[in-house]
Amino acid sequence: MRQKLPDVLRSPYFWSLLFLAALLIFNILFTERFGVIEVRDGHFYGNIMDILRRSVPTVLLGTGMTLVIATGGIDLSVGAVIAVSGAIGALLARDGYPLPVIIALPLAAALISGVWNGFLVAKIGIQPFVATLILMVSGRGIAQLLCGGQIIKFSDPSFEYISAGFILGFPFSMYLAAAVLAAVQTVTRKTALGLFIESIGVNPAASRCVGINATSIKLIVYAFSGLCAGIAGLLLTTEIRGADANNVGLNLEMDAILATVIGGTAMTGGKFYLAGSVIGALIIQTLTTTILARGVTRPATLVVKAIVVISISLIQSSVFRSQLSGLLAGRGGRA
């Protein structure tokens, strides 16, 4: 007889939250000066603040990615869109354009990139993997062309505020991410949009039969994912006050997918968990910060990350969990 796990253990958030908490507790106990939070220049300063601030781009990307994955798709282009948006923002800032232009044009470019992905996927019917791969490759090239192979540096305090500014001691970018999350949560859960997205992911044919317009919903989610990448691009570019087209956002699409998967949203689409993706993003950044704070060497970093990801993914899988509990029950019986 198979034992049923208690409900709390099957919650999509339980295991990832447990892991995040364990990681933080481990660090606070064993990593030198990890838990110390000071007040410097009127804002909080410490490793934990770094985790919060640096996870914002992944949180944003993860939010867009979660919706895309829920429709059964994937968006590989977000890293490249970051580079494009950052390059445009940096060029405008360098040439002294007013702030609204510096913010609006990159975001418009990112939105267009997203709409383009959505168009290829929803209208033309190209597989999401391939459709977004096109922009993943070409987008970085476009950004490199814009920057002419150089890091475009700028100095514009009002633009830099989005990653260097603080409100009540907390980074401005955190509020930004919270606002985006709150908006998405409201739109998807207080309207039927969330349900439509999930139903497309679960069964596209049946959703069409009940009259859900998959084309426009897919367009919306890809466009939104592009927009999120655009915001992340502005954050990462202002972080170093320069557009580094070769490196900015490199492999971040993988982190966004990872955050989504760790958060409990299945790659096959269907039910999605925004809060889970946020926890996923926090786990990824906590791992990175832990590794830097403890001085682990780089090759080891990748192995550690891989092990963590595999364990969390396994434990998230209900199939694996039921097999495990079956195994445990079997052993208990024999003893």
Binding site: D50, L236, I240, L292, A293
Partner: peptide
């Protein structure tokens, strides 16, 4: 010593960790 991968972004992030420590 820690790698910053020759990039500005990682150079900054690694230095942040050094400063905390």
């Amino acid at each position: 010593s820690q790698t910053g991968d020759f990039t500005m972004e990682l150079g900054k992030q690694v230095m942040e960790a050094f400063l905390k420590k």
